[in-house]
Design a protein around this nucleic acid. Structure first.
Lengths: 342, 342
DNA sequence: CGCTAACATGATAGCGCTAACATAGCGAAT
DNA sequence: ATTCGCTATGTTAGCGCTATCATGTTAGCG
């Protein structure tokens, strides 16, 4: 029953100095030291200097976990994408990351692998980290996700596409992009066009582009056949071309779901000695540098992916800082790049 | 002085249910509920079922921040790379991410933008999050970083290159890769080869490859000129080719620091009607799919980047789980891909 | 000279969870 | 019957920080 009882329970986690030790070294209270670091304008300039000196001398590293628990704010931003293998998401992440990092937010990156159940688990985990906001690629979520997101009272930003969003939304209209390219193909005189995509169940935005493409062709009284591949990438593009030639003999143009497929096909056409666009026209989507460097230059649609990430991050930050959000939805648009492949 | 004093201090952060509420609902103590979720084998099966039912019913989401503070462990892994724009790092991150995520670790991604001071700040922040381990791309750090890392008593994994590591190290020998390609060029009969890289101060691993290249050429009594560009990418490769032709008239081969540059040059050579490899031989580094799909196929060196990430993650996990680490250093090697461009 | 406002600092009490130790129950071994 | 060891659960006391309220101190005013 002596007063050293609670010494026996000691369990300092590390030997790192704590804020209390810094405060003692600077001759102030812990809360003043805390303010000196986090709200510099609330402490006297000379006090702050003493605290900073103590921080430096002791090699103090703030325990952000403790700070987050106490304040119930974490400066974490959850970012959830379906894949890291696709450079499209990487560019959006880059835009998000730069902007958030500059404002002192840390991204928590989650990869669903196109699995909505995994998305739910990731969101749970990220909410457990008291993230300040969530950014997801796309508008499709399962019921559980939707409930979780609707009840969590944090800014939710859905990027990539436009539509019925939960909260904030920055993206572009993929159906319209599909229409745009289809119209271009029609203008170029292609009456027989094939749309080729890969794993469209996952890449449903490509599916939306096909829907737009189909709409335009059918309104013109033309067929809009679809060919779905098992995989993406340059290789798959070559395969797609082979299959198109075999399965759709009369075809004059191929509208690929993305530039990787399209460029793979274009390079393969060269190897086969098939003239592009005379024998076969090829179009892509994304506006990757790759497609702009091959000969003939690829006709494609460029979307401002990095800018989309930046804008999304800025809107989230605006919301977090309590500023009024003017518009919940932003259309970042797209641009048709007419090359020599159509 | 009544006993409602501490009611006035209430500050529940959110309306989320807490573990205590789950425990009450299940008729057990908080610690039992905690164990039911985190150490299932330590509680009776029926008790656990009751707890899980309560979790489900209340929609409980564990507060990981509180858990980390209490246990001083966070399951965060800091991953620090110099850039996200370079697909090489993305692939390593992919390997790391998959492996860590599968074991329940969450990656904290930091981007130094090739700035060692930023690296120091990032490491401080990540240590503040009580990360379990740190993974950095590369062995170069400033003094402050080195001190911080040396004293933090967590597994440190340095990836990409091999050398004098702080702790664990998974990578490949870039100097040897440079030698390997140089020997290949010599075997092909190229006596006049130019090395072209971009921003070599940041991309010092490319500098190491140049050192290897130069060593081989100089030992053969030949010159090993260097041309440094301001930027990378396919465009820059084209620029590099132009400059090489103008500034080094006799040159017969160009050893590019990476495939982006090399492919950019190769495609540009086609536009110029310059035969590859007859008029000019072109070699790259990385083994990107891109270079393998152009005609002529690019001679390059492939490194197992995703596998490097996976192996690095596995070694870190092994260490974290207290298993004996057999080797602190792993050479993942590389592979010369001989195409038709040399 | 008192009164107020603005500024600077401090004491206290948590944030929600888990480590460490404590206890209870039960079958097996002594 | 006592002891031991094992499993299942509970009690207590923090982890390191910040929100909240309280207090002291100085300047400004009529």
């Amino acid at each position: 029953m002596s007063n050293d009882v609670h010494n026996s329970r000691r369990r300092r986690s590390t030997e790192q100095p704590t804020l209390k030790q810094v405060a003692d070294a600077a001759g102030v209270s812990a809360i003043t030291a805390s303010r000196a670091l986090n709200r510099p304008d609330q402490v006297n300039e000379r006090t702050r200097a003493r605290v900073l000196e103590a921080v430096e001398r002791l090699g103090y590293v703030p325990n952000l976990v403790a700070g987050s628990l106490a304040s119930a704010r974490s400066r974490f931003i959850a970012v959830i994408v379906p894949s890291l293998a696709n450079s499209v998401f990487i560019e959006v992440i880059q835009g998000l990351q730069e902007t958030f990092e500059a404002q002192g937010y840390q991204i928590l990156l989650g990869n669903t692998e196109y699995d909505l159940e995994r998305e739910y688990q990731l969101i749970r985990t990220f909410l457990g980290w008291s993230c300040s906001a969530l950014v997801t690629a796309g508008l499709r979520h399962n019921e559980a996700c939707r409930t979780l997101l609707a009840n969590c009272d944090k800014p939710i930003m859905e990027v990539m596409e436009l539509g019925e969003a939960l909260d904030l939304n920055v993206g572009l209209d993929h159906t319209e992009a599909g229409r745009c390219m289809a119209r271009h193909l029609l203008e170029r005189g292609h009456r027989q066009a094939l749309f080729i995509g890969a794993r469209l169940a996952g890449d449903y935005r490509a599916g939306m582009r096909y829907a737009g493409h189909r709409e335009v062709f059918e309104q013109a009284g033309l067929a809009a056949p679809l060919l779905e591949l098992e995989r993406g990438g340059l290789d798959a593009g070559a395969t797609g071309l082979e299959r198109a030639l075999a399965e759709h003999p009369g075809i004059g143009a191929i509208h690929f779901a993305n530039d990787d497929l399209a460029t793979g096909a274009l390079l393969h056409a060269q190897r086969l000695g098939l003239e592009v666009p005379q024998k076969i026209a090829i179009a892509g989507f994304n506006g990757l540098p790759l497609g702009q460097h091959v000969t003939p230059r690829l006709t494609t649609i460029r979307s401002p992916r990095q800018a989309m990430g930046e804008l999304a991050a800025m809107e989230v930050i605006r919301r977090l800082e309590g500023q009024r959000v003017l518009r919940r939805q932003h259309d970042v648009g797209f641009e048709l790049l007419v090359g020599n492949s159509t």
